[in-house]
Design a protein around this nucleic acid. Structure first.
Lengths: 123, 123
DNA sequence: TTAGCTGCAAAAGCTTTGCTCTGTT
DNA sequence: AACAGAGCAAAGCTTTTGCAGCTAA
C-alpha cells in the first residue's frame, strides 16, 4: 500500500473532522489539499482503508454510509435532521441481548439517535 | 385512493408476512396474486401507503429500506446476517436520551440487532 | 365519464469497474 | 523499471418519473 497525496488527504480529512463523513463530504474537503481529487478514488481508498482497518464504515439508517477513523471506543451516533450532520455519541446503552427472542444469536448492535444538534437547536 | 388489485396484493403480502419486506421481496410475493405487477407500482404504492399511514418505512443500517404494516407497537428489528431476513423484536430498551450530549434534542431512536436468527442458528 | 393507477421505459442518483496513464518505490 | 494507484468514463443498481393506455368509481 503506497503513500499517495490522495490517500493522505483522505486520512487527514477524517482525522480533522470529528464526525463520520460521506464520500461526497470527503471529496469536497480533500479537494482543498488535492485539487481535482476524484470521487472514484475516494470510494476505492475508503474501501481499501476499511479492509485494512484504518477507517470504519458507519452505516446509517436510511442514509449513505459514512466513514470515520478507526480506533475509537465503542460508541454510537446522532443524526441532526436539520443540518444532516452525523455526530459521535460517547457512551452506549447495554442490555440489547435481553430483547432478542430465544434462539437468536446477537452478534452486533446498531443505535442511532436523531433530532437536532446543539447548534441547530440553539439557532 | 382507489382500491386496486395491486394495492390490495401489496397490503396482503405485508400483512401475511410477519416481518418488514423490501420492495423487491414484495414484488416477488405479490406477483403470485397479480402476475406481472411492476416494481415501479410497488414503489409508488409504498410511498403512498406510507404517507397515508397505512405502512411504515423501516430504515435499515446499510441496507435498502423495508416496509411493514402500520399500527404495531413501538419495537425494533433484528437482521439475520445469514438469511438476510429482518425480524421484529418485541420490546425496547429505553434511556437513550441519557447518552446524548447537552443541547442535543433527541426526537427519535433506531435500534437494530444483528446476528443469526433461530432457524439459521439451529441449522 | 374521468381522474387515479398501472406498466413500460427512460432518467436520476449513488457506487463500482475497465482502461490508460501517472507516480511511488 | 515495475506495478499500485489516479482520473475519466461507462456500467450497474436501486429508486423515481414521464407518458399512454386502462380501470375503479
Amino acid at each position: 500500500m503506497r503513500k499517495t497525496r490522495q490517500r493522505e488527504a483522505i486520512l487527514a480529512v477524517l482525522s480533522g473532522e470529528r464526525r463520520p463523513l460521506t464520500p461526497t463530504e470527503i471529496v469536497g474537503l480533500a479537494d482543498q489539499a488535492v485539487p481535482g481529487i476524484n470521487l472514484a478514488t475516494v470510494y476505492r481508498n475508503l474501501k481499501l482503508l476499511a479492509e485494512t482497518g484504518q477507517v470504519i464504515s458507519v452505516e446509517c439508517f436510511g442514509q449513505t454510509a459514512r466513514y470515520e477513523v478507526a480506533g475509537l471506543d465503542h460508541h454510537h451516533h446522532f443524526l441532526c435532521e436539520d443540518c444532516d450532520r452525523l455526530f459521535d455519541l460517547p457512551g452506549c446503552v447495554e442490555d440489547f441481548e435481553s430483547i432478542a427472542p430465544r434462539g437468536f444469536e446477537v452478534r452486533r448492535h446498531h443505535v442511532q439517535l436523531a433530532g437536532r444538534c446543539d447548534e441547530c437547536a440553539a439557532g
